[in-house]
Each structure stands twice: as structure tokens, then as C-alpha cells.
């Protein structure tokens, strides 16, 4: 069993309205040194599989097909092997 941790954010070229809104709230709280805020999505997937490279290829496929809109979002992921219970 493997655990995939997937991080999705807007591409840098897109103005992220939620990030901007959070940034201005932080500035109002006097954290004026906060220069940029990016808000994204986080997924955890547990997958069965034998080979970690195969699982990684599958996770990439899942991201490109469904979890991520590659027109406006970018992603990275980590995969770790889980101990059998």
C-alpha cells in the first residue's frame, strides 16, 4: 500500500483571488511582511500496488485526468510506502 500526497495550486500566471484576499487580511492583522499567499488543494490517496514507480505513473495520470485542471493549475506529489497492518 502506498500513500500519495498531492498538492495543487494555481499556475503563477493566474491571479488567485482567494490568496489575494487572505493576504490583505494578514496585512490588516499587521503581518505586513507577508509578500504573497497561494491557496491550493491537498489530496491524500491510498493506493495498492507492488511497484512504486508504477503507482507514481498512475498518480500522475489521475492528476492529469481528474484532480487537476492543467489549463490553470499545477501540481506536485510525494509517494510513501505504508507499513502493512
Amino acid at each position: 500500500m502506498y500513500l500519495a500526497k498531492i498538492y495543487v495550486t494555481y499556475k503563477p500566471s493566474i491571479l488567485d483571488p482567494k490568496g489575494e484576499s487572505i493576504k490583505s487580511a494578514l496585512h490588516r492583522l499587521a503581518y505586513e511582511n507577508v509578500a504573497d499567499v497561494t491557496m491550493g488543494k491537498y489530496f491524500e490517496l491510498k493506493l495498492t500496488g507492488v511497484d512504486q514507480d508504477d503507482v507514481a505513473a498512475q498518480v500522475k495520470d489521475i492528476c492529469d485526468k481528474l484532480l487537476v485542471n492543467v489549463n490553470m493549475e499545477t501540481y506536485r506529489f510525494e509517494i510513501e510506502a505504508l507499513e502493512a497492518v
Binding site: 494555481y10 493566474i14 491571479l15 483571488p17 482567494k18 484576499s21 485542471n69 489549463n71 490553470m72
Partner: peptide
Amino acid sequence: LPGALHENTSL
């Protein structure tokens, strides 16, 4: 169709 739609800038 090309492109994508996301949050209004005003939220």
C-alpha cells in the same frame, strides 16, 4: 472549449 473558469476576482 479552450481555457478554464475560476473564482470571480471579487470572490
